[in-house]
């Protein structure tokens, strides 16, 4: 029997498949389409302190091999999340990670603090890298502010591991990764979407109402692989901080690539829209791959890509 289990700084996952925040709703939206009990962990849509309506449409556009979105963190806000969504999450058959976003230190601290006592919440993922809200990027791209934010947030989440989701829209993701770890991040998740744009050449206008959006899907996978590999080798491995890899994961082959690059677990986002059962299939394929590699545990293969000079 192949062991696919993953330990993310105290959060135990039966297998390495997770959902990407914002692609899977708050709880049971995919209940009819996938086996939620077979998920390694479920990551909720971002929650902000105040309810947000989100951006005007058009909010998405498909590009070659990718999807560009500018949803604008449309969400029910902290109060309704606690009232309406947590009772649902309590019934979920897998570990839960709540994604939290904000505009200010106070926003983040208040929302994260509210998650600390909730028993069914296994971990909090800090969204410091949404490219579609006006001041949302500054935390994710400024190492000093990021370190301070993570430090403040960590203080109000003593009971659970803290995940920090890194932006790829920086000069060197290893620098922000180091800042997050120095601030107290227990797990790094990368990458969020890439800031991008698409133009309607007939109307000569941007195709998204927000002008720019975040690019996801298979088009970004090679860049995400590079960033996971870089963060693993430069920072995370030495610090003993596990990585959740994401960015264009559609198949078990993609997931295996992230594992080899240094990810302990993988998250599936855009692919869920096409095939909500993708995490279940990925899990199956990974098991066979691990055994073909002659390993007994998936975790033995994390970061084992052989580089020239290794």
């Amino acid at each position: 029997m192949i062991d696919l289990s993953v330990h993310l700084a105290g959060l135990k996952l039966a297998n390495p498949t997770m959902t990407c925040s914002g692609t899977c709703g708050y709880a049971f939206e995919y209940g009819d389409f996938m086996d939620l009990s077979q998920l390694g962990a479920f990551v909720t849509k971002s929650v902000t302190r105040e309810e947000r309506p989100g951006n005007p449409p058009a909010r998405i556009v498909e590009t070659r091999g990718g999807m560009l979105n500018a949803i604008g963190l449309a969400n029910v806000g902290l109060k309704r999340f606690l009232d309406e969504k947590v009772p649902q999450l309590e019934k979920m058959p897998c570990p839960i990670v709540v994604n939290v976003a904000g505009h200010s230190y106070d926003d983040y601290v208040e929302t994260v603090a509210a998650m600390n006592p909730i028993a069914c919440v296994g971990s909090v993922e800090l969204n410091v890298s949404c490219p579609n809200v006006k001041d949302g990027l500054t935390f994710g791209t400024n190492p000093g502010r990021l370190k301070e934010l993570v430090h403040e947030v960590k203080k109000v989440l003593p009971a659970k591991p803290l995940m920090v989701k890194l932006s790829p829209n920086v000069d060197d993701v290893a620098v922000t990764a180091r800042a997050a770890i120095e601030g107290g991040a227990d797990v790094l998740t990368l990458v969020n979407t890439f800031t991008a744009m698409s133009i309607d050449i007939h109307r000569r206008r941007p195709r998204l109402a927000n002008v720019t959006g975040g690019l996801s899907g298979p088009a970004i996978k090679p860049i995400a692989i590079h960033m996971v590999s870089r963060v693993y080798r430069q920072v995370a491995k030495a610090a003993g901080v596990p990585i959740v890899g994401m960015g264009g994961v559609q198949t078990w082959q993609d997931a295996a690539e992230f594992i080899l690059a240094g990810a302990s677990a993988v998250a599936i986002g855009t692919a869920l829209f096409v095939d909500p059962a993708a995490p279940n299939k990925i899990c199956e394929g990974l098991g066979e791959w691990v055994s073909k590699q002659g390993a007994e545990k998936l975790s033995d293969l994390v970061g084992t890509v052989q580089m020239p000079g290794d």
């Binding site: 709703g25 989100g54 449409p57 909010r59 556009v61 829209f273």
Partner: peptide, 16 residues
């Protein structure tokens, strides 16, 4: 009619 990714209430793109 709206541009849609998921059709299941998760992507939040088909708003009106």
């Amino acid at each position: 009619e709206r541009a849609m990714a998921c059709g299941m209430g998760t992507c939040q793109s088909c708003c009106i």
